[in-house]
Amino acid sequence: MDDFLAWFRDFAWAGWGILAVGLAALEMLTMDLTLLMLASGALAGGLTALVVPGLWWLQVIVAVVVAVLTLLLLRPTLLDRVRNAPGYRSSLESLVGSSGRATAQIDARGGEAKVSGQVWDARSFDPDVTIAEGHEIEVYGLDGVTLIVYPVRPQGQLGSN
Rank of each mutant, 00 (worst) to 15 (best):
S91E: 13
P127S: 12
D3I: 05
W7Y: 14
A104L: 14
D143M: 07
G41T: 01
G46S: 12
L58G: 07
S90P: 09
L142P: 06
S94H: 10
H135I: 03
L19A: 15
V82Y: 13
L29W: 09
F4V: 12
R89C: 05
A113W: 03
L29A: 14
G17H: 08
E133N: 09
T77D: 06
I148V: 15
S124H: 00
W57R: 09
R9L: 12
V51I: 15
D107A: 04
I148R: 04
G87R: 07
G87H: 06
L33N: 09
R101K: 12
T34I: 15
Y140M: 11
A25G: 03
W56L: 10
A108H: 08
D10F: 14
D107R: 02
Q59K: 04
R153E: 12
V145R: 13
L35E: 02
I137L: 03
A108K: 07
G22V: 04
D10L: 14
N161M: 05
D128K: 08
V21A: 07
P76Q: 11
W56M: 10
S90Y: 07
Q59Y: 04
S124D: 01
V115T: 06
M37V: 08
L69Q: 07
P86Y: 06
A44Q: 02
Q105R: 14
G45T: 06
W57P: 02
S99I: 01
V139F: 03
G156A: 13
A49F: 06
A102D: 03
R75H: 13
L158C: 03
T130Y: 02
M1L: 04
S124I: 00
Y88P: 05
L58P: 00
I18P: 11
A104M: 14
T34L: 14
V115I: 14
D143E: 14
S98L: 10
L35W: 04
D126P: 00
L26I: 01
T146L: 08
E93A: 14
F8K: 08
V96H: 05
L95T: 02
P151A: 06
V52W: 15
V152Y: 00
R89K: 15
T48M: 13
G87M: 06
R89H: 12
V115R: 04
Q157Y: 12
L72P: 11
Q157C: 06
F8L: 15
G117V: 03
M28T: 13
Y140T: 04
G134F: 02
G111D: 05
A39F: 00
A67Y: 00
V65A: 15
P76V: 09
V82C: 11
G54L: 09
F8E: 11
P86T: 03
I18F: 11
P76E: 11
V52H: 09
M37G: 01
E93H: 13
T48P: 02
L23Y: 00
V68A: 14
A113C: 08
R89E: 12
D128F: 07
G22L: 07
Q157D: 14
L36T: 08
S99P: 00
L23H: 00
L43G: 10
D2A: 09
A132L: 07
